[in-house]
């Protein structure tokens, strides 16, 4: 991955796929307040995705807008990390995914807010405030579930263990990018270590480190997610909505 277009698309795809997964919870959350909260976070992610994909289209200069990029690329052309495309699982898995994503996005957007590219800096400045809320919300649930009942502790630990392998891909070095993801790892580790300890959870050892999302080599799940997301748009080529 390199160049501002690829970088911007990868961030936009992270946010878009995360929004799509979070929105799957609508009308299914464990309680009504949480339904509202998850929709809020999904809306934030979707909002960031739209800004990023719109800007990516401009950087590319081939006339593609946010919808062309979202609806008319196949899974091999998506550049999101694998973490966001993993199925929601139970509420603990969803919170583990959101917690790791927000712990990465917060330092990312914060760094982006200070980068040389004005448009990316503006997007980063807006999105980092939202990420701070996402991180608070997810961390609160990680603590509640980790230090709640025996069952919730077991589920939360399993969720952390199951998603941990996918976080390493987020920090693959890319020195040419507007923000080099490798520089974000320290912040991420500090957040994760603190919250997991408060939650009475064990931080997993690092072993298997699946990757490939940034190169368009995804899990089997992404193609299904896109099939659903794109079906109507693709059924009516050229239509306006």
């Amino acid at each position: 991955m390199n160049g501002p277009f690829e970088f911007t698309v990868s961030l936009g795809d992270d946010a878009l796929v995360a929004a799509q997964r979070l929105a799957e919870w609508t009308s299914r959350a464990p309680e009504m307040e949480e339904d509202v909260a998850l929709a809020n976070i999904a809306l934030d992610q979707l909002g960031a995705a739209r800004l990023l994909l719109t800007y990516a289209g401009e950087l590319e200069g081939a006339g593609r807008d946010e919808d062309a990029l979202a609806y008319l690329r196949d899974d091999r052309e998506f550049r999101n990390c694998l973490l966001v495309e993993l199925p929601n699982g139970d509420f603990a898995v969803t919170m583990a995914k959101l917690f790791f994503l927000a712990a990465y996005q917060l330092p990312l957007y914060t760094a982006l807010a200070g980068c040389a590219d004005e448009r990316l800096a503006a997007i980063g400045a807006k999105a980092r405030k939202e990420s701070a809320y996402h991180l608070d919300h997810a961390a609160l649930w990680v603590r509640r579930l980790g230090d709640g009942t025996e069952e919730s502790h077991r589920r939360m630990q399993a969720a952390v263990d199951g998603t941990w392998p996918y976080v390493h891909e987020l920090f693959a070095a890319d020195p040419a990018a507007p923000v080099d993801p490798a520089t974000l790892r320290g912040d991420f580790d500090t957040t994760v270590t603190t919250v997991l300890a408060e939650a009475t959870l064990t931080r997993p050892e690092t072993g298997w480190t699946p990757a490939g999302g940034r190169d368009g080599v995804h899990t089997e799940h992404l193609s299904y997610l896109l099939a659903e997301m794109q079906v109507l748009h693709r059924a009516h080529p050229g239509a306006r909505w």
Binding site: A29, P30, E31, F91, R144, G148, T149, E151, S152, R155
Partner: peptide, 9 residues
């Protein structure tokens, strides 16, 4: 399906 989450909270 949300019962265990509400209990944990």
């Amino acid at each position: 399906e949300g019962a265990w989450v509400r209990e944990a909270a």
